[in-house]
Amino acid sequence: MTLRTIDDQIADHPFFAGLGSDFLHFIAGCGRNRYVEGGEYLAHEGDDANAFFLIRIGKISIETNVPGRGPVVLETFGAGDIAGWSWICPPYKWAFDVVAREAASFIEINGLCLRGKCEADPVLGYAVLKRFAGMMSERLRDTRLRLLDLYGNDRKRS
């Protein structure tokens, strides 16, 4: 059995599809494999955001605590998804909790490390930022669709 390196795993992840091997190697240098059990927190709202997660197996959720209601699940992500962009923009604080819904394996990329590499190499920085901008754009579109509350019974008259 061949041991797959983090370079290989990142190259296979849909988020980084098409990125050159040099860049993948740079990014992999900031990554480590992690495994967590269901219920474990990957990040807490308000803490320093120094990482993002490339999910390989399992399911994680973005949550927030609503007084009187308890934790509310805002969105769930599974294999092939990515979670975490607070590491890119000041003030570099997690906006929400990140929780494993079930046992999950993922690659954790150190945001401080990658930010440093992106600052030093703007071509790498632009390539990384383009991918995050695309992902943010998709999430914003999805969030707007949910804001419409399309399944709500807004035509109800009686």
Binding site: K59, S61, E63, R69, G70, P71, V72, V73, L74, E75, T76, G78, R101, D142, T143, L145, R146, D149, Y151
Partner: peptide, 14 residues
Amino acid sequence: VDRADRDWRGEVGV
């Protein structure tokens, strides 16, 4: 589902 609390073990999103 569009929204759920933690009792829901399924997926949340659009």
